[in-house]
Nucleic acid binder design. Structure first.
Length: 499
DNA sequence: CGCGTTGGTCGTATGACCAACGCGGTGCTATACT
C-alpha cells in the first residue's frame, strides 16, 4: 500500500502498470534487476519511484543526449528540482560546479562516455548511490563492441563506485543480449522481469520484389495508399533524403527525411513536427526512433533490411502503441543483404589496416607507450574512420596495460574482429532467412526471444493471411488535414520513366 | 558485394550500350578556434 500511496502522491497515478510494481519491489529489496518491459511509457517510473524511497543518488545511464534532456525535463515538470543531465550541454564552469555539488542532486543522468572520466568517477565514489540505472540496456550489446566502447566499461565503473544496486532496463533483448548485459554489468546473480515482446496489433508482411526499381515503385504506391502516420526505414542517408523528395514529387506534402547527418536543430524540428501530427511520413535511418513517443503510428516500412532481428523489432515496435491495428512491411529485392553486410564489415578495422599499423609501429617504436597523440596521423594514413580508430585504440590501450607485446595485440585484434564479423554475418543471415521463411513470421521472430506464439492473432502476417485493404487510408473522407497525395494519378506517374 | 550514377563511345540523331566509379548507419566528448 505504501508504494501505491507514493505513486498517487508523487506521480498522480492510481495504479501500477503491469510489471512496474514487481520491478520496484525487487530494486527496493536490494536486488540487482534486469527488466524487459514492452515499449512505451512506464519504464522511467521503475527508477523514479524507488529514488524517493532510498537515501542517496540515482544515477541513470542514458544513450542519447536528447533522451537525457527529455527525462530530466520531465522530472522537473513533475516538481523535482534535484535533477541534472550531466553532459556536454553544460559549459565547463557548469560541469565543475555540478561536480562539486553532486551530492545535492537526487537524479543524475549521464552518458557512458562522461561517466568514465576520472574527474567524474572520483566524485561519484564519494556519493552514496541508491541506484545505478542503465536505460536502454541493450545498447551494451548492440553498441558496446564496435561503436561506443564505453558501454562495455559500465561494469568496471560500477565496481569502482562500490557495486550499487543496479537496474537494467530495455524493451528488446534476446537471451544472448540479456546474458551480455548481466555479464558486462557484473550482475550475473540478479532478478529478472521479462515481458513478452510480441505486439499482436502489428501485422507483419514481407514483399519480395525483383529489383531496386520495383521496390521504389512499390514504396511510392504503399506510401500513397496506407493509412498514416508512417515511418520508412532506410540504411542510407542519401536514400532517405531522395525518397522523401520523390514522395513529395509524387504529391505527398507532409514528408521529411531524418538521419544522423542532419544538424541537431532540423532533427528536433522534424521529430517534433511528426510527433505533433504536422508530418505524416518520415523517411529515416536507424537514427530515428529511440525516445519517439507517438502512439498512433500506423505503419513502418523497411526499404532496406536491418542488421539484426532485434533492431527490426525495435523499429517496427514504434507502430501501434495505442493498441490499434498497424502494419510492418519489409520490402526485399535479391542482393539487398549485401548492404548490411557491407555496413557490418566496414565498422571494424580490416586486416590490411591492422597490418599497416603494425608497420607504422615498427617505424615509430616509441609510440607504443602512448599511441593516442598519433591519432590524426594514423587515421589519415591508414584510412581508419573515427569509429574504427576508437575501437582500435580502445582494444590497444586495454591490452597494452596488461603488458602484451604489440605484435601479439594486433594478432589478437585480428582474430577478435574476425569473430565479431562472423557474429554480425550470422545475425544478418537470420534476418535473411526470416525473409524467405514459409512459416508464420510472428512465430519465428518470437522464437528468437525464446517465446512462443500462444494466441491466434487476427491479422498476423503475410504467411498466415493478411488483407492489405484493412490498412488503407479511407478514401471517402475528404479530410483536408492529410491529403497525402493524389492516388488516382499515381499509376500514370509510374508509367513515365524517371528522368 | 551489387546497386545506381556517370561519362564515354558510336557516328551524326538519338539513345543504346558498357565500363569505371562511388556508395553504404547508429553518438558521445573535448579542444581550439572564430
Amino acid at each position: 500500500m505504501r508504494l501505491e500511496a507514493l505513486l498517487q502522491s508523487k506521480f498522480g497515478f492510481s495504479a501500477f502498470r503491469p510489471g512496474q510494481k514487481e520491478i520496484i519491489e525487487s530494486v527496493l529489496s536490494g536486488r540487482n534487476t534486469v527488466a524487459m518491459l514492452p515499449t512505451g511509457t512506464g519504464k522511467s517510473l521503475c527508477y523514479q519511484l524507488p529514488g524517493y524511497m532510498i537515501e542517496g543518488q540515482v544515477i541513470i545511464i542514458s544513450p542519447l543526449l536528447s533522451l537525457m534532456q527529455d527525462q530530466a525535463e520531465h522530472l522537473m515538470m513533475n516538481g523535482e528540482k534535484k535533477v541534472i543531465a550531466f553532459n556536454s550541454f553544460l559549459t565547463r564552469g557548469e560541469k565543475k560546479q555540478a561536480l562539486i555539488h553532486l551530492n545535492q542532486y537526487k537524479f543524475i543522468f549521464i552518458s557512458p562516455e562522461m561517466l568514465y572520466y576520472e574527474s567524474v568517477l572520483s566524485q561519484l565514489k564519494k556519493l552514496r548511490i541508491a541506484l545505478f540505472v542503465v536505460d536502454e540496456a541493450h545498447c551494451i550489446s548492440q553498441w558496446g563492441y564496435d561503436f561506443r566502447p564505453d558501454y562495455l566499461k559500465l561494469g568496471e565503473v560500477r565496481k569502482i563506485i562500490g557495486n550499487p544496486v543496479t537496474l537494467a532496463l530495455t524493451a528488446t533483448a534476446t537471451a544472448e543480449v540479456k546474458a551480455d548485459i548481466k555479464k558486462s554489468l557484473g550482475i550475473l546473480d540478479c532478478s529478472e522481469f521479462i515481458y513478452s515482446v510480441d505486439r499482436p496489433n502489428i501485422a507483419l508482411s514481407v514483399e519480395r520484389l525483383e529489383n531496386f526499381r520495383e521496390k521504389t515503385e512499390r514504396l511510392v504506391e504503399l506510401a500513397g495508399i496506407l493509412q498514416g502516420p508512417g515511418i520508412i526505414y532506410f540504411s542510407s542517408k542519401k536514400m532517405a533524403e531522395q525518397s522523401a523528395e520523390l514522395l513529395r514529387d509524387k504529391g505527398a506534402k507532409r514528408v521529411m527525411a531524418y538521419h544522423g547527418g542532419m544538424d541537431q536543430e532540423s532533427r528536433i524540428l522534424v521529430q517534433q513536427q511528426f510527433i505533433h501530427g504536422q508530418l505524416d511520413l518520415i523517411c529515416a535511418t536507424s537514427a530515428f526512433g529511440m525516445g519517439i513517443n507517438k502512439d498512433n503510428i500506423r505503419y513502418v516500412i523497411h526499404f532496406h533490411m536491418p542488421l539484426q532481428i532485434e533492431s527490426y523489432l525495435q523499429e517496427i515496435g514504434r507502430a501501434g502503441r495505442d493498441g490499434n491495428q498497424s502494419i510492418a512491411i519489409m520490402l526485399y529485392a535479391p542482393g539487398d543483404e549485401q548492404l548490411p553486410i557491407q555496413l557490418a564489415e566496414s565498422e571494424l578495422p580490416d586486416k590490411a589496416q591492422i597490418d599497416w599499423i603494425k608497420e607504422w609501429i615498427e617505424e615509430n617504436p616509441n609510440a607504443i607507450q602512448n599511441i593516442g597523440p598519433f591519432e590524426e596521423q594514423i587515421k589519415q594514413r591508414s584510412g581508419l574512420t573515427d569509429v574504427q580508430w576508437r575501437i582500435f585504440n580502445d582494444f590497444f590501450e586495454k591490452k597494452s596495460k596488461s603488458g602484451l607485446d604489440y605484435r601479439r595485440i594486433l594478432q589478437e585484434m585480428k582474430e577478435y574482429y574476425e569473430g565479431r564479423i562472423k557474429l554480425k554475418r550470422d545475425s544478418i543471415e537470420e534476418v535473411y532467412k526470416w525473409i524467405y521463411k514459409k512459416t508464420c513470421r510472428r512465430e519465428s521472430i518470437l522464437s528468437c526471444f525464446d517465446e512462443e506464439k500462444n494466441a491466434s492473432v487476427p491479422s498476423c502476417c503475410d504467411i498466415c493471411g493478411l488483407q492489405l485493404e484493412n490498412f488503407l487510408r479511407n478514401t471517402n473522407s475528404d479530410n483536408q488535414e492529410s491529403p497525402l497525395y493524389d492516388w488516382k494519378n499515381h499509376l500514370e506517374y509510374l508509367l513515365i520513366p524517371s528522368e
